[in-house]
Structures are given as C-alpha cells and as structure tokens.
Design a protein around this nucleic acid. Structure first.
Lengths: 208, 208
DNA sequence: ACCTGAACACCGTTCAAGT
DNA sequence: ACCTGAACACCGTTCAAGT
C-alpha cells in the first residue's frame, strides 16, 4: 500500500524528471516574486535536499542559466506570435513585436532581470546566448521582410534589428528600474513612449 | 610619538571621513573587477571592522546606493563634456553624447551594472533616481537645443530624449552581456552600430 | 558619537555515506 | 545513478560592550 502510494506521487515528484521540476520551481519563484531565488529555496519547494540539484546542474549558475533559456524561449514565442498577428505590413510588425517585448519584460520583471543580468561565463552561458540569439532572429525577420517587400529603405538588416532590439530592451529596463517611482500609469505610459519612438524611427526607415 | 604617528595616518585613515572612504573603496573594488563587492570586503580594504559601515549607511543597500549615485554623477559629467565638445550642431551633439554614454558603460561594466541593476526600495533609492534623472537632463538639453534651433522637427522633447537614452542604454547592456562572446573588436563594433542607428533616427528627426 | 567582536541566520559548495 | 546530512567558508545584520 505504502509502496503504491509512493509510486503514484512519484509521477510528478522526483525520480526521472527532477531536473525539469527544479527549473519549473525556479520559474515559479520568480513569477511569484515574493521569495528569493536560491538553490536551497528551489530544492525546498520541490521537497528535496538542498544538495540534490547538484546531480542535474552545474551549481546555482547552471540552474539559473537553464531558467534564463526558458525565458528567452518564451520571449521568442510571444514576439513571434505578435509578428504573425500583425499582418503583412512590416511597419505594423515592428511596432507589434516591440510592444510584445516590452509587455513580456513588464509582466515578468524578475525573470527578465535574470535573463539580462550578469552571468558567470561557462558552457551553459553559451546556450543562454544561443537562446537569446534565436529570439533576436524574430526582429531580423521583421526587418528583412520590410526591406524585401520594398516597404523599408535598403538598410543593413542586422544593424537595424540590433537598433530596434536595443531600443525596446532599453525601454524595458527603464520601466523595471523605477519600480517605486511615482505614476501608476507606467504600463500605458511606456507604450506611448514606444509609439513615439516608433514614429520617429519609421520616418528614417520607410521608403516613400 | 605613537600618538603623533597615529594622527598623521588618521588624515586619510578613518575618523571624520570614514563614510567617503568607504564609498571610494567600493568604487575601487568595482573598478578592479577582481574582488566581489561585499560589505565585508569594503570594510576590510579600508581596515575597519565589518560592522563599522553600519554607522554611516543603511546596511549594504545604503552603501550600494551611494556608489550608484557617484556613477550617475560621472555619467552626467562625461556626457555633458561630450555635448559641449561637439560644437553647436544638435545632430553632432546627440551622436557625441551617445558615444560617451556607451564608452562609460563599456569602461566601467561593474559600476554600470550596479547603477541599473535591481535596487531595493528605500529613501536612498530615491536619491539614486534623482542622480539618474540629472544625467538624463543632458540628453533633454541636446534635443531641446535641436528643436529650438530649428534643426530638429517639433518632436516631443522628453519623449525623444527618452528614446535616445533607451537606445544607448540598451546597446550598452547588450555589449556588457556578451562579455565572453566571440569578437574582440566589440568596442569599435558597437560604435558602428550606434552610428547606423543614429543615421536612421536622424532621418526621422531632422527637419529638411 | 563611533567602533569592535561575538553571535545569528542564511547562503553555495564539497564530500563521505547511503540506496 | 541519484540522494542525503554533516561540514565548511562566506555573507548581511544585530547587539552588547567598549572608548
């Protein structure tokens, strides 16, 4: 009896998939934002000893890297969805992906800070950069499409994508920095800022 | 004899100005980049017990806030100097301040990350934001001058300044993130990126 | 008014030991 | 192959005690 009970729990508990469960727990802690993300807090939440994670990750940095990768994968997903939903106009696509980007950072501040915060070098760090590069490609696609269709000027594609990314990234960071600042209309305000920047950029980007 | 020796040392040692000495020590640790910035490491470098800082700061966060303020003051200084050295053309001024901004972040990566990293809320945090706002005003002046002289279109001044700041801030962050990335020509590369972004932005900003 | 040293709770990491 | 518990070095912070 006790054995069969144990087997039932084990499906979601921990034997084959402790690695994945730990990553999810870390993401959940960041999402809730109350608790500190600690190797010990993650292990405790899963119900495992605080040294168990060392069997699946290269210490705390290894776990953090895996969480950051998940973040970049989702960032790529939401921006790509926004791009597809924006229709065929490259101008609309660029604005939509920028908005999706800023919303992602605003809604997941702790995860976003982790993704772009200082990382120790290492092999897992390269995988993080690869995930970030994949997310970056969404913007490259937008610019490439705009240039290809003749809507945009013949700008350097990756250079323009880099500028767009830097702009939304910088804006997101500035929103997250001033968490205690006056003005609860932060969310709408930053979107207006992006709109203004977008219209200036577009005057330099559009062909006609 | 021992007393007079002691008095000589005390001038730079610690009695009246321990507070300032601790801030300098923290900045020096960040500058060197080898040591971890820790309340204890700062105290040790100054030659004082690790609890002494509590007489001058609200814990570690209080010291960190003071260091960040110093950083923003210097950021304001270097961008303002670049603005003045760039002559009277607002276009040149905008590019020069952007370059000075990115160079500041590139040369003081640890300090820059501290300035824009997650800060705990508190009174000292407000002073940090005030120092950051003062640095921001340099860019506002550039845009205001460009609009006033008729060189720039009649854009929203603070909105355009915000966009410019976000752009260089985002670029700086992206340079600092990829510390281990391939391509040692990082420094020159990012400046070319900024030039490209600047020329696109200018097409939307300039009047004629 | 300012500084020290002991003490506390917490953290990341290592390692022998268990299964 | 995976997990545990003790142990270690380190951290921020508090506090009684000194001057």
């Amino acid at each position: 009896m006790a054995t069969s009970d144990r087997n039932k729990d084990d499906k979601t508990y921990h034997h084959g998939n402790l690695r994945a469960v730990l990553i999810d727990a870390g993401l959940a802690i960041l999402e809730e934002g109350e608790q500190e993300l600690t190797l010990r807090s993650v292990a405790k939440r899963v119900g495992v000893s605080h040294t168990a994670p060392y069997n699946h990750f290269a210490g705390k940095d290894g776990l953090l890297a895996e969480i950051a990768i998940r973040g970049f994968e989702e960032l790529r997903r939401v921006t790509d969805e926004a791009r597809l939903a924006a229709g065929s106009d490259a101008d609309d696509q660029l604005l939509a992906t920028g908005l999706a980007y800023i919303r992602f950072g605003s809604r997941r501040p702790a995860l976003y800070q982790l993704m772009f915060g200082p990382r120790k070098a290492g092999v897992s760090s390269e995988k993080v950069e690869a995930a970030g590069a994949a997310a970056f490609e969404v913007l490259v696609e937008v610019i490439r499409g705009g240039v290809g269709s003749g809507r945009f000027r013949q700008v350097d594609i990756r250079g323009a994508a880099f500028s767009s990314w830097a702009l939304v990234h910088g804006m997101t960071q500035m929103v997250l920095d001033r968490t205690g600042a006056p003005g609860a209309d932060k969310g709408t305000d930053i979107e207006m800022r992006l709109l203004a920047a977008h219209s200036i950029t577009m005057k330099g980007l559009l062909k006609s």
